[in-house]
């Protein structure tokens, strides 16, 4: 198995409107197998566009205008994501790369029980499974994320925000993907629940060994949980380094600005001065 999981090379995304907006500009980065990569930056910096773009989840008028995205499967095969057709893309999705979305408030279908929404994934991607096997797989997933198998018949509006987010995580985990992209998964939750979710993600990672791309504007959070952090600004990656080095020895001015805008909990009054 290669050390690299995802090779993004000279990747650009433009929104084809009047005038065109270059949301991601010639980004090159290599995602290592098993790491947690944080994507940080202010609103509109392109971190979401980048993460969605490499999965080709963006809708028109977004267009990939340059570059390549290669997924190095655990089986040794290389998948050129930008060359897949629609049907291949559909099969690739969720199986190799899955996502946990922000604000599970509305991310679950309100009229279907969550068990059915989890089973959906198996029905489409693992058609050879029998109904009993699917049920058992769903129950197992719900147990793993500590929602409980008896909740399979519940509807989304019956669950609290934290539980819904855990259901989303279970859903993302269903096919044991190699990469999970998490788009601000804890932003809409209160801090206690946030911590619980993060603990869960960490534990699942240790158990299942998937790679994580974690998108958030909350840099201190990334400093705590990520292996490497990529700071983005106006569509470009301005700094990419380990969390430790970003904190102790930031190179780019923008990184320094970001780091200095967080207030401290301890010590003297005032902001963190680097």
């Amino acid at each position: 198995m290669r050390d690299a999981l995802l090779s993004v090379h000279d990747f650009s995304v433009t929104y084809d409107v009047d005038p065109p907006v270059e949301a991601v500009k010639h980004v090159t980065l290599e995602l290592r197998r098993g790491e947690i990569l944080g994507l940080a930056g202010e609103s509109g910096c392109g971190k979401t566009t980048l993460a969605y773009g490499v999965q080709r989840l963006l809708k028109a008028p977004a267009v990939i205008t340059s570059g390549s995205v290669v997924f190095h499967d655990a089986s040794g095969e290389d998948v050129e994501v930008d060359r897949l057709d629609a049907e291949q893309m559909r099969r690739f999705r969720w199986d190799k790369v899955s996502m946990v979305f922000q604000g599970a408030m509305n991310a679950l279908n309100p009229v279907a029980p969550i068990g059915a929404q989890l089973e959906d994934v198996f029905v489409v991607h693992r058609p050879q499974m029998s109904r009993a096997e699917r049920r058992e797989a769903v129950a197992e997933l719900l147990e793993i994320v500590k929602v409980g198998r008896q909740r399979a018949r519940s509807f989304p509006h019956e669950l609290s925000g934290g539980m819904r987010q855990r259901v989303m995580i279970a859903m993302a985990l269903a096919l044991r993907p190699q990469l999970m992209v998490m788009d601000e998964p804890t932003t809409a939750l209160d801090v206690l629940v946030q911590r619980e979710i993060l603990r869960q993600i960490s534990q699942l990672r240790h158990e299942f060994g998937f790679t994580v791309v974690f998108i958030t504007h909350d840099l201190p959070l990334l400093l705590e949980i990520s292996d490497r952090i990529a700071i983005m600004r106006e569509g470009e990656i301005v700094e990419l380094d380990t969390a430790e080095r970003i904190w102790t020895n930031p190179q780019d001015d923008y990184t320094k600005t970001l780091l200095s805008s967080f207030p401290r909990l301890t010590g003297e009054r005032g902001v963190v001065v680097r």
Binding site: G53, R56, L57, L58, K59, V63, S66, M89, R90
Partner: peptide
């Protein structure tokens, strides 16, 4: 189209 178009 649920898949982003690629147009170098």
């Amino acid at each position: 189209d649920p898949v982003t178009a690629v147009r170098p």
